[in-house]
């Protein structure tokens, strides 16, 4: 019996609580989406998507803990790297047009 299965108040396990926390982070991501869509400048959008990516890494880590799947952490690491690549590529594009890589 792992920590995830330990019961909290009301018969709910820690895993259930973590799932609700992850859902809360997704709601925060939807809030951040407003900035990504609205802008008004490209820098706002780049920053918003960067925050969204970091948010996704956190969500994946929480899901890995809640569902007892440590391999999710590997995906979270790949995400962190890709998030960095995406932010760098878009930032370079907005500063010097044509210089993506």
């Amino acid at each position: 019996m792992s920590v995830v299965d330990a019961s909290l108040a009301g018969g709910y396990a820690v895993g259930d609580f973590l799932l609700v926390v992850a859902a809360g982070f997704v709601v925060l991501a939807i809030g951040m989406l407003y900035r990504a869509v609205k802008g008004p400048t490209m820098q706002d959008r780049v920053l918003a998507v960067n925050v969204l990516g970091t948010n996704t890494v956190v969500i994946l880590a929480i899901l890995g803990a809640a569902l007892s799947e440590p391999t999710f952490l590997d995906i979270a690491l790949v995400y962190a790297l890709l998030n960095f690549l995406m932010a760098i590529a878009i930032s370079k594009f907005t500063v010097e047009r044509g210089g993506v890589l």
Binding site: L33, A36, V37, G39, M42, R45, V46, V49, G53, M86, I90, F93, T94
Partner: peptide, 8 residues
Amino acid sequence: LAAVIVFG
């Protein structure tokens, strides 16, 4: 460009 960013 905004569409590309949001698609990410």
